[in-house]
Amino acid sequence: MSTVLAQQWISVDGFLAGTKGEADVFAAVGDFSASEAHNTALLKDIDEVLLGRRSYETFAAFWPAADDEPMAHQVNALPKTVCSTTLSSASWGAHAAPRVVPDAVAHIRSQRPTDTRTILWGSVSVMRTLLAAGEIDELELFVAPIALGSGTPLLAAGGAPLSLRLQDSETWPGGVLRLRYTVA
């Protein structure tokens, strides 16, 4: 059976970004070496990267030409799927083009009988849609040492509570915490 891991950077007060989408969470992290080492090891067991349209556009503008980045070869080599109702095609520089699907839930459900391991990066709306449908198995949070006070929360306001069971955790340089949960 397939598994879906959603990975998010988050502030200590539960925000993914500032009120205007600012990347203050990332700016608060002075050393990404632990997350890069973690993801380099993790990506060896990943079969697909899942992205929403906005995350895809950000990633596609960076990773295809990021040859000096530790994870670039793995990120560029992995098959990618973009969930979008506005794109009909997607490119990834000189690498294999991502597949575009209009429905994230249908896509994940079609893979459930297989042994596919999918990682969802960023893509807040896709993550929330998959969580609401019960299609995220694990949630990994990288907690940056910053409190934003307001912004884009992990979960949409008014949604159902999300029950989680802690699998493991680590403290990384600069006060970053990695928390890995099973979605109950």
Score class of each variant (00 low, 15 high):
residue 5 L to A: 14
residue 23 A to G: 10
residue 88 S to G: 14
residue 174 G to R: 01
residue 183 V to N: 13
residue 62 F to R: 05
residue 72 A to I: 01
residue 172 W to E: 01
residue 15 F to R: 05
residue 124 V to A: 14
residue 177 L to M: 08
residue 38 H to R: 01
residue 47 D to C: 04
residue 52 G to H: 03
residue 47 D to S: 10
residue 148 L to I: 04
residue 159 G to H: 14
residue 127 M to Q: 06
residue 168 D to F: 10
residue 181 Y to I: 08
residue 149 G to K: 11
residue 96 A to P: 11
residue 184 A to N: 14
residue 143 V to Q: 00
residue 5 L to T: 12
residue 169 S to D: 11
residue 70 P to S: 11
residue 79 P to V: 14
residue 94 A to K: 07
residue 88 S to F: 15
residue 95 H to Y: 10
residue 125 S to G: 12
residue 109 R to F: 05
residue 174 G to V: 03
residue 33 S to A: 04
residue 2 S to I: 02
residue 17 A to W: 02
residue 138 E to S: 11
residue 19 T to L: 12
residue 40 T to V: 09
residue 108 I to A: 04
residue 183 V to A: 06
residue 162 L to P: 15
residue 137 D to F: 00
residue 99 R to T: 15
residue 27 A to P: 12
residue 73 H to W: 10
residue 30 G to H: 09
residue 82 V to L: 01
residue 2 S to Q: 08
residue 101 V to L: 06
residue 78 L to H: 10
residue 100 V to A: 03
residue 46 I to D: 04
residue 56 Y to C: 07
residue 184 A to Y: 09
residue 32 F to W: 02
residue 151 G to P: 04
residue 97 A to C: 11
residue 29 V to Q: 00
residue 116 T to G: 15
residue 52 G to E: 00
residue 158 G to A: 08
residue 50 L to T: 01
residue 53 R to Y: 09
residue 48 E to V: 12
residue 82 V to R: 00
residue 177 L to T: 04
residue 171 T to V: 12
residue 181 Y to N: 02
residue 117 R to D: 09
residue 179 L to T: 07
residue 151 G to D: 08
residue 95 H to F: 11
residue 58 T to P: 13
residue 96 A to M: 15
residue 154 L to E: 09
residue 34 A to E: 09
residue 54 R to M: 14
residue 43 L to M: 11
residue 2 S to T: 03
residue 172 W to H: 05
residue 37 A to K: 04
residue 27 A to Y: 15
residue 5 L to Q: 15
